[in-house]
Nucleic acid binder design. Structure first.
Length: 265
DNA sequence: GGTCCAAGACCGTCGGATAG
DNA sequence: CTATCCGACGGTCTTGGACC
C-alpha cells in the first residue's frame, strides 16, 4: 500500500513513516497539498494521510476534497492541536485514527478504506436560495443552474461554506490552489470578479454579495432575509471595531448554512 | 482633538497571453 | 475553444503628517 502525507510535526511524521514501513505500507511525506495532488494524479498513491494540526488540517481537507471529489480516501491522524474527529469528518475526512502507542488503529482504518469504493461524505451546501453540488461542480438558485469552472466552484465552495465570515486571501488561495503554490493576488481577484458576475447573472436581484474586506480577504454576505434563514448577527457593529478588524465576525458561523447529504440535492 | 490633503496601497475591471 | 493566469488602468480606501 502506498500513501502520501502532509505533516506539521516532523518527529511524528518520521515515526509514522517508520512504523507503517514495518507493516509494508509506504508513506511519502509531501511538502504541500499541491504536491499531494500531483502525486495522486500520477497514480503514485492510493490514499492521503493528514496530520490533525488545527487550522492547517481544515485548509488541507477543503482543498483536497474539492480537487479529488471524494475519489481518494483521506485519513486523518490525531496530533497536537487537534481539531478532533468530529470536525475532521465534517470537513471531508474519510476516516480518523489516533496514533499514540501503536500504529494498529491506523492500519485497521487504512485496510478498511483503501481499495474500497468511496462514499462521498458531504455532497452539497445550501446557503439561502443557493445550493452547491460538489459532485457536479454546479451552483443552483431557484432551479436555475449556474455553470462554474473548477476554480470558480472551489472558490464558491470556500466562500459559501464560510458565509458571513471573513476568509483571508491567503486561506482562500491555500484552499483553492493548495498550500505551497505561488498564486498572484491578481489571479484571486480575477476569479472573485468572474464568480461575482456569474452569481448575479440572470437574477432579478442580487441575493449574495462577495464583499472585499480591505487588506484581509473576502466575505460572502446574504443581503435579504427570507423565511427559513436569517442574516448573521456579528454581535458588534463593524463601526465599533478597530479599522483593521471591521467586517470580522465576532460570533459563531451563521445559521443559514446547511450541509446537504446524498439524496437532498 | 478634529479636519484636510497627499501618497501609497488596494480593489474592480478589461484585455491579452498561454496551455491543454 | 475554454480555462487559467497576469499586466494595465482607473477608481477607492487607508494612513500619516500638517495645520487649525
Amino acid at each position: 500500500m502506498k500513501l502520501v502525507g502532509l505533516f506539521i510535526n516532523k518527529a511524528r511524521q518520521a515515526a509514522l513513516v517508520r512504523d507503517l514501513s514495518s507493516h509494508g505500507v509506504e508513506l511519502r511525506p509531501m511538502p504541500s497539498s499541491a504536491a499531494v495532488l500531483h502525486a495522486l494524479k500520477r497514480g503514485e498513491a492510493q490514499a492521503v494521510l493528514l496530520e490533525d494540526a488545527d487550522t492547517s488540517l481544515i485548509d488541507w481537507l477543503a482543498m483536497l476534497q474539492l480537487r479529488l471529489g471524494g475519489i481518494v480516501p483521506i485519513l486523518v491522524v490525531g496530533g497536537d492541536n487537534a481539531v478532533g474527529m468530529v470536525d475532521a469528518m465534517a470537513h471531508g475526512a474519510t476516516d480518523y485514527a489516533d496514533y499514540v502507542d501503536s500504529v494498529e488503529p491506523l492500519l485497521t482504518r487504512l485496510r478498511a478504506r483503501v481499495g474500497r469504493p468511496q462514499q462521498l461524505r458531504r455532497m452539497g451546501l445550501e446557503v439561502g436560495p443557493y445550493a452547491l453540488d460538489a459532485a457536479a461542480s454546479a451552483v443552483r438558485r431557484d432551479d436555475r443552474e449556474i455553470s462554474l469552472t473548477a476554480r470558480e466552484f472551489a472558490l464558491a465552495w470556500v466562500l459559501f461554506s464560510n458565509a458571513g465570515r471573513v476568509v483571508s486571501a491567503s486561506s482562500l488561495t491555500a484552499r483553492v490552489w493548495g498550500g505551497g503554490t505561488d498564486i498572484c493576488k491578481r489571479t484571486l481577484e480575477q476569479h472573485v470578479y468572474r464568480l461575482r458576475r456569474k452569481l448575479s447573472c440572470g437574477a432579478t436581484e442580487s441575493v449574495v454579495r462577495i464583499q472585499a474586506v480591505y487588506s484581509i480577504g473576502y466575505r460572502l454576505d446574504l443581503l435579504h432575509e427570507q423565511p427559513g434563514w436569517a442574516a448573521p448577527d456579528y454581535g458588534i457593529a463593524a463601526t465599533e471595531l478597530p479599522l483593521h478588524a471591521r467586517g470580522l465576525p465576532q460570533e459563531q458561523p451563521p445559521g443559514y448554512l446547511r450541509h446537504l447529504w446524498p439524496g437532498e440535492l
